[in-house]
Amino acid sequence: MIPFNKPYLTGKEAHYMYDAVNTGKLSGNGKYTKKCQEYFEEKYGFRKTLLTTSCTDALEMCALLLDIKPGDEVIIPSYTFVSTALAFVRQGAKVIFADSEQNNPNLDVRKLESLITTKTKAIVPVHYAGVSVDMEPLMDLAEKYNLFIVEDAAQAIDSYYKGKPLGTIGHLSAFSFHETKNIISGEGGLLGINDKRFVERAETIWEKGTNRASFFRGEVNKYGWVDIGSSFLPSETTAAFLFAQLENLDDIQRKRISIWNSYSEKLKPLQGKISFPTIPSYATCNAHMFYLVCNSLNERDELIKTLKENNIHSVFHYLSLHKSPYYLKNFNERPKLIQSDRYTDTLLRLPLFYELKESEINHISKTILKFYSND
């Protein structure tokens, strides 16, 4: 069976983890945590970054930093993972769901203004498959209505919008290093901070509500409980694993993009029969995933079955959050989000990982071509 995903090891992970153990400090914010954070700040230009135990935790930190409270509204796409909503719902916010674009699962920025009210506090664009939401008009909306933008860049490492790295455009951002992502640490995440107003408080929240970081920099002579917070820091072994991956980012990206391009070329004969990922002129593709958009739920089910019979593991993706049991139980609104529901029923992700062989890409592509030749 060709798996959907296979975690890739560069060869240095165990070495750096052993080194982390030998430093005598395994808890967070040690040597490798600092190396990873410096990498992101220097390579991409973040004002400040903080490693977290997951992207979910990074999003929860965003909700705390924005002082999200009961009665606040936060606009997010319905076609996303539950963490995008959960981070803000836990603080008492009401999530307002936006629909996706017709040719892209990203939220449709053109339809957002009608969703904004006096209660709106933030908008959370999700860069689906690492392809950028149209950020310029989104930032214009934020300025017009005095809103915060939190980029859910879980899938978007090393991807760009008009030359700017994703995650560096909004006020805050969150990345994932889950084992299914381009760069991994098993579990893990990153908070990106681009607005100086949030830098100092982010460190406090990150350090369980204490000013511990200031103490170790010699800025205060003792530290204590000064704010809300939680245990958001990953261990040094997690950070050490991640640093080995970051050192090989360019190589990993070259290989993934090569696989993505190979799929695109081999499946080109199906253009017009099904839809493929659309990369807008303002965006780049970081090859996080290669997906198809089938014509119906039944067609997708049959294609998944055919691929499985040919030893290929393919998977669908998100279920529209506005139709989730939790939302239906706890919220009265019933928005009609046609595109989100369409992607829920028809989007199919193909295997894409560093060690995927060209012969396997050929087998997958030929199986899909044969499936549609029988229509």
Rank of each mutant, 00 (worst) to 15 (best):
L51Y: 07
R90T: 08
L297V: 03
L191S: 00
V95T: 13
E355C: 12
K273V: 03
S324H: 15
M135G: 00
E13V: 00
F331H: 13
R201P: 15
T346H: 08
I338G: 09
S281F: 12
T33A: 04
S314A: 13
G224I: 07
N374F: 11
S54C: 14
K69A: 09
L172H: 06
K43L: 12
K357T: 04
D67M: 05
E309V: 00
G218I: 04
L190N: 02
E151P: 04
L356R: 02
F243Y: 10
K366D: 06
I183H: 05
D99T: 02
H15S: 06
L112P: 14
L297R: 01
W260V: 02
N248K: 13
N221E: 08
L297S: 01
G170I: 04
V95F: 14
S281L: 07
P165E: 03
L172E: 06
V95Q: 14
I75N: 11
F243D: 00
V95Y: 14
G92V: 12
L348E: 00
S100W: 06
A244C: 14
G163V: 03
R110Y: 09
K336P: 08
I75F: 10
Y291V: 14
G28F: 04
I364R: 03
I123H: 06
L307K: 07
G30D: 11
G45S: 12
Q339N: 15
S264H: 11
N330Q: 11
I149R: 07
A287W: 02
T180R: 12
S159P: 04
V315S: 10
T278K: 12
F371T: 00
K35D: 05
Y8Q: 08
Q102P: 12
F371M: 02
F290Y: 08
S54W: 14
H288G: 05
A142K: 15
M61L: 09
Y160A: 01
G163E: 06
S185M: 07
S340M: 14
S320M: 10
G30L: 14
H171C: 10
A87N: 11
D251R: 10
D152K: 08
N22H: 10
E355M: 12
L303T: 00
I75M: 13
S231I: 07
E265K: 11
S258E: 10
P351K: 01
I184T: 07
L65Q: 08
N298K: 03
E236V: 03
L51T: 02
M17Q: 06
M135D: 00
K268G: 02
L59C: 05
R342F: 05
L347D: 00
D152E: 14
A63K: 13
L50W: 03
K208A: 05
A156G: 03
R197H: 13
D227K: 09
F371R: 01
S296N: 01
I96V: 11
W260I: 02
I157S: 04
A287Q: 01
T53P: 05
G186N: 06
A129D: 09
G218C: 09
E136P: 03
A154G: 13
S159L: 06
P269Y: 04
T284D: 03
I228H: 08
L65V: 07
L86D: 13
C294F: 00
Y79P: 03
H317A: 15
K266S: 04
I279C: 08
F241E: 02
F215I: 05
